[in-house]
Design a protein around this nucleic acid. Structure first.
Lengths: 195, 195
DNA sequence: AATAAGTTAGTGAGTATTCACTCTGCAAAG
DNA sequence: CTTTGCAGAGTGAATACTCACTAACTTATT
């Protein structure tokens, strides 16, 4: 799963994320990539078989980060509230640190004709959602979270709010501090889902 | 605002929505459009100046529907809960009836290089969000909704849940009944935001 | 009523551009 | 002397869009 990337491959991914954050997924072309790195277009194919492979690599990077975050939180001994709190906080921090990832997760529509990419994206989403649901379920059983609403619905609410908030941040051209304002949103969510 | 579309223009929009729902925004090309309608590519330019104009037309159609829905609900004498309930229900019904609109609202990333389209999309989102926030605010003042969480955060939660749920429906290939399951989600949301 | 003029909606060929990707050859390193 | 990393030139497919032209109507003029 760790993929063992070479230095050049890492550089290609880095520059790809740069380009995506600047001009969106559409800005990620072989030409732009080569120009930015400073070598010819053909050189890229020494390191990646094709463009899809590059995108797969990016999604794997994303998947790895997200899942590490979610799984880690799932297996702690904290209560559900602080698990979810941490989850949201870390998620906001990741996006603040690399805004290009925001463009990536909202590019599903563009991946629609590439089945591999589509599957990767749904996998990531489903995984996060399931982990969150499971955290909530446990929290309900322990009496930490309200149980008058089913866990899956609470998960939709939490994850939906997270995504929309990040989207609003992106559309405002990062006008507000995502981590800071995100903390406030997080507190509000806490109030809503606590017993 | 009604745009006064000719019969042919209406047909072009209809077929565009068809193509989008089948193959995503990427499936909407002048070639595909012309082939489906049954005339030459150049004929399209008799009815629309360029492809962007077609997309603007689609977004206007979407904007019109959404805003009609939100504004109508804002001005009724019902309580906030049933306003939001209706809003969600009608929204789910619209998407069920024309799933292509889902592809459109999640295509923001693709519109990023076309400022006109980008602006149209943010306008639609901002408008809906503001109307929803205003409904919630009124509900809080009247004591119908919980006031221990600020209105904007409640709006993020409601709208975020709506969007994520629709996204999940789309990604499942419309496997479940959006209107039906959406009603259930709506009930859960009610519970969360009621005093 | 007949002709002339103008409009509308179409065709088909062709444009420029962009895209991902390939082929050949070269130079340096092991 | 073979592998690796790269350059340069090129390919074919796809894209949105333009151009000159035409057939079918409609409207105005005599």
């Amino acid at each position: 799963m760790t993929e063992e990337l070479s230095d050049r491959q890492k550089e290609i991914i880095e520059v790809s994320l740069e380009l995506i954050s600047e001009k969106g997924i559409q800005g990620l072309t072989i030409k732009n990539l080569a120009k930015r790195i400073g070598f010819s277009e053909s050189a890229i194919y020494r390191h990646y078989e094709n463009k899809t492979e590059i995108l797969v690599s990016i999604l794997n990077f994303f998947k790895y980060n997200i899942e590490k975050l979610f799984k880690a939180e799932l297996n702690t001994e904290r209560d559900a509230i602080s698990k979810i709190n941490n989850l949201l906080f870390n998620q906001f921090k990741i996006f603040t640190a690399s805004p290009s990832l925001v463009a990536v997760i909202f590019s599903e529509e563009l991946f629609r004709n590439e089945i591999i990419l589509m599957n990767k994206v749904s996998e990531i989403m489903k995984n996060s959602f399931d982990t969150l649901t499971s955290i909530i379920k446990t929290g309900q059983e322990k009496g930490e979270l309200r149980a008058d609403v089913e866990a899956e619905h609470l998960a939709v609410v939490v994850m939906g709010a997270l995504r929309l908030f990040v989207k609003q941040w992106q559309m405002s051209n990062h006008e507000f501090n995502l981590t800071e304002k995100g903390s406030e949103l997080s507190s509000s969510i806490n109030i809503l889902i606590t017993k």
